[in-house]
Computed example of a mutant assay.
Amino acid sequence: MPGSRRRCCSIGGSPGWRRGRCGRCGIGCGPICRPAADLFAACLLAGSSPVEAAEAVAHAVGGPLAARLRPIVASLRLGGDPSRCWLGLADDPVLAPLGRTLARAATGGAPAAGAVARMADEQRAERRRAATSAARRVGVRATVPLGLCFLPAFLLVGVVPIVIGLTTTLLRPF
């Protein structure tokens, strides 16, 4: 998108998605793009219908997520069976939980806002756990280069002069 600010355009289901990065824009994405999950939950908690929430998310996030949501929104607006339409997301492993949640809400009449908000919270917690784990790994990985740099320096500055001083003192003839 030339001229627009960079934003996540994928949710992880695009063909180029690898290691938590969007194949199109290179910005890190979660299983369902964090802003998209939060936006979907916020729309539902504000009283929007799932169709309106999906339409708002598709418009705001764009990219492959919009490509997946727009046909579902269109079929729902034309009077399609909500549970069948939302289960259309089940073939995508990333969007399957969202599709099942919205289909269950459409079939049973349970409010979807709480379930989608919990999904967003779980994704935030998972992202936090991954960041904490990565920070711990950095600390462990930093000890090797520090040890390789400081140990020789310590030996050259601290130990070698003492050894040289002792050997010259001991090897001097009386």
Rank of each mutant, 00 (worst) to 15 (best):
R5K: 14
R7M: 11
I11S: 06
G12Q: 04
R18P: 00
R24S: 13
R24K: 07
G28M: 03
C29K: 02
C29M: 07
P35F: 10
A36T: 06
A36K: 05
L39P: 04
A42F: 11
L44F: 08
S48V: 00
E52M: 08
A53H: 05
V57N: 06
P64M: 12
L65R: 01
L65P: 00
A66C: 02
A67T: 07
L69P: 01
R70N: 11
I72D: 01
V73R: 04
S75T: 12
R77H: 03
L78Q: 14
G79D: 12
G80K: 04
S83Y: 02
G88D: 02
G88R: 07
G88K: 03
A90N: 01
D92K: 00
P97C: 02
L98G: 01
L98Q: 03
T101K: 08
L102T: 01
L102S: 00
L102N: 00
A103P: 00
A103Q: 03
A105Q: 03
T107E: 15
G108R: 07
G108L: 15
P111S: 11
A115Y: 10
A120E: 10
A120D: 09
D121G: 09
E126P: 01
R127Q: 06
S133L: 11
S133Y: 09
G139N: 02
G139M: 06
R141S: 02
L146G: 12
L148C: 11
L148Q: 11
C149R: 07
C149A: 15
C149Q: 05
F150W: 15
L155P: 02
G158H: 09
I162A: 15
T167Q: 14
T168W: 14
